[in-house]
Write a protein that binds this DNA or RNA. Structure first.
Length: 580
RNA sequence: GGUCCUGUGGAGCAGUUGGAGUGCUCGCCGCCCUGUCAAGGCGGAGGUCGCGGGUUCAAGUCCCGUCAGGACCGCCA
């Protein structure tokens, strides 16, 4: 190394040591006769004092330099208690310019904030500069540490890291595939894996028993703050297990991460909640338990009402503490909010501390209206916001409303960590056209024990041996116990309308494998990007990636994707029609 | 595919009722300065107000379209 010490590690104990540092000019305070340089490297930064070194006047921000000098104690009054290295400084005897820097496109600050005020596009375009900032540097290091801890936990439990192909065929997650043309077979295409799902099940047939992988996954769907085209999973599969093994492993993993990276002891085991309980109480399959504000079910209360708005499969409400103070404008804003989410709107009732309730539902039958606050559990001073309609969509609307109200009213206890398991999810949901059924998780998910023989008779009610682990309202991981018997698998295919020929064509290799003594197995996969985002306290998984993409799928740094030339097009065989 | 928000010197912002490219902080360039740590002082440069069209005597400002980014819905576990 061309340096002898790391700048950020120097302390009082190093006083008197001759050092050579190498790093960047973070700041320069030029007093003419004396110049102070804050020299930053990966370890941090230290103040360098330059006297009788006229060449340092030419230095500018982010020039790369090396400094030879001696560590000295700062005199009293010159100590900076805000810096880790604030008790010492390096008196320079020589400063060498290793490379110069143009003026920067945005400031490189020393703050520990991950996000800065700078336009994200500019940050991604110059990500190599953004990563010199303390916050983003910490983010990528936290990610590395998290992955290291995951590997440690997995290996200590005897799991085997196996790589699976990226150039493969469509996997059964149901998202759009990224496709790759195959030059050697014009007209034929690989799909990039949406997950290693099928391969990890094959590894169980292969007797690995305990598999894990830090796997890149690809899904060609629209982006969100917490979704991007390529993301990373900690993918896990085990044989001869039941749910408890997955729960215990997951709790060990997450508790280790939170303990080692945040110094927080997560209480385990995590509480468990059924999917329908989560929907009923919180209107979400990933409830945020850092605040209460449970949904109120008023369907019974409204049974047989003449009031048309509440003649619906489900009538529910969110009680807003102190909401009686809502202005008409604020209530209209909730209306707009509901409509922007595709809902019909929100009915409301204000319960003032004195006087009669008022709202958009005062034409409700008088007895129903009078008993409504009590039925909803509302106190004087509260507001009740109602939604009515089909059960699941109404609960989801109310769940979103619950989140929005909690945020608006500052009810979220942001210093808490609330983890839970959501279990007993439905096996199937209606297809988009409502004509059939599709697997909620994926078609290899086993039915719960109670439904093993009968799920095909009532697909809507059938429950799956699937589980999601949720932290602070974010789905961090999910998985299931798989089907390992051909007869049961065939019944699932029948329910989702997959013919034998189609199943053979899509998953024939898996079904073939399952003819040879497949073990009972199951697994889970964690969204590493989301996990790291949680650990960092950000919503945007972009901040956890070294080189993230913009929401249009483009890479602002490299300019990918790009058009291809006619030659590339011909060579890749994109337009070739495959022979029969 | 849809809704909403944003786009003004290098960065972050402000810009009123439509009235001169106006302002602020930082950065940049030059000069001065031996204890600063967000150094300071003096001086200076830097603009296709995202782009195109329209309304108007006059557009950063109003209207239409478009591009880019972001949030959300659809989509996606």
């Amino acid at each position: 190394m061309i340096r002898t010490h790391d700048a950020g590690d120097l302390r009082v104990g190093d006083v008197g040591t001759s050092v050579t540092l190498a790093g960047w000019v973070a700041r320069r305070r030029d007093h003419g006769g004396v110049t102070f340089l804050d020299v930053r490297d990966a370890s941090g930064s230290v103040q360098v004092v330059c006297r009788d070194l006229p060449e340092v006047h030419a230095l500018r921000s982010e020039w790369c330099i090396s400094v030879g000098g001696e560590v000295t104690a700062r005199t009293e009054g010159n100590v900076n208690p805000n810096l880790a290295t604030g008790e010492i400084e390096v008196v320079a005897s020589a400063v060498t310019v290793l490379s110069e820097s143009e003026p920067l496109p945005f400031p490189i600050d020393g703050s520990d904030e991950i996000e800065s005020g700078v336009d994200e596009m500019l940050r991604w375009k110059h990500r190599y500069l953004d990563l010199r900032r303390t916050g983003p540097a910490r983010a990528v290091r936290t990610r590395a540490k998290a992955i290291s801890l995951m590997r440690h936990v997995m290996e200590s439990r005897g799991f085997v890291d196996v790589e699976t192909p990226y150039l493969t065929r469509s996997t059964p997650e149901g998202a759009r595939d990224f496709l790759v043309p195959v030059r050697l077979q014009p007209g034929h295409w690989y799909a990039l894996p949406q997950s290693p799902q099928l391969f990890k099940q094959l590894l169980m047939v292969g007797g690995l028993e305990r598999y894990y992988q830090i796997a890149r996954c690809f899904r060609d769907e629209d982006f969100r703050a917490d979704r991007t085209a390529e993301f990373t999973q900690l993918d896990i599969e085990m044989s001869f297990l039941d749910e408890e093994d997955i729960f215990a492993l997951t709790e060990d993993l997450l508790a280790t991460l939170w303990r080692e990276l945040l110094g927080i002891e997560l209480p385990t085991p995590f509480p468990r909640m059924s999917y329908w309980e989560a929907m009923r109480r919180y209107g979400s399959d990933k409830p945020d338990l850092r605040f209460e504000l449970e949904l109120v079910d008023l369907t019974e209360h409204m049974a047989g009402t003449e009031f048309r708005v509440f003649q619906a499969e489900h009538v529910g409400a969110v009680v807003v503490p102190g909401g009686a103070a809502y202005t008409r404008k604020e209530l209209d804003a909730w209306q707009d909010w509901a409509k922007s989410r595709g809902g019909k709107g929100i009915a409301w009732l204000l319960i003032p501390t004195t006087g009669e309730p008022k709202g958009s539902i005062t034409r409700l039958e008088p007895d129903r209206l009078a008993s409504l606050p009590e039925a909803a559990g509302a106190q004087p001073g509260d507001a009740i916001l109602f939604a009515a309609g089909p059960r699941r969509t109404t609960l989801e609307m109310l769940g979103a409303l619950r989140l929005a109200v909690a945020q608006q009213q500052g009810l979220v206890r942001t210093d808490e960590w609330k983890f839970l398991w959501v279990v007993d999810a439905p096996m199937f949901e209606p297809t988009g056209d409502g004509a059939g059924w599709t697997a909620v998780h994926h078609p290899f998910t086993a039915p719960s024990v109670d439904w093993e023989k009968t799920f095909q008779d009532d697909p809507e009610a059938a429950l799956a041996r699937a589980y999601d682990v949720v932290g602070n309202g974010v789905e961090l991981g999910g998985g299931s116990i798989r089907i390992h018997r051909g007869e049961m698998q065939q019944r699932v295919f029948d329910v989702i309308g997959l013919t034998r020929a189609e199943a053979e064509s899509k998953f024939g290799f898996l079904l073939e494998a399952f003819k040879y003594g497949p073990p009972p197995h199951g697994g889970i996969a964690f969204g590493i990007d989301r996990l790291v985002a949680e650990l960092l306290g950000t919503d945007a998984i972009r901040e956890t990636m070294a080189f993230p993409k913009a929401s249009s799928g483009g890479d602002p740094l490299t300019g990918a994707p790009t058009p291809i030339t006619a030659e590339q097009r011909a060579e890749a065989g994109i337009d070739a029609v495959p022979e029969e």
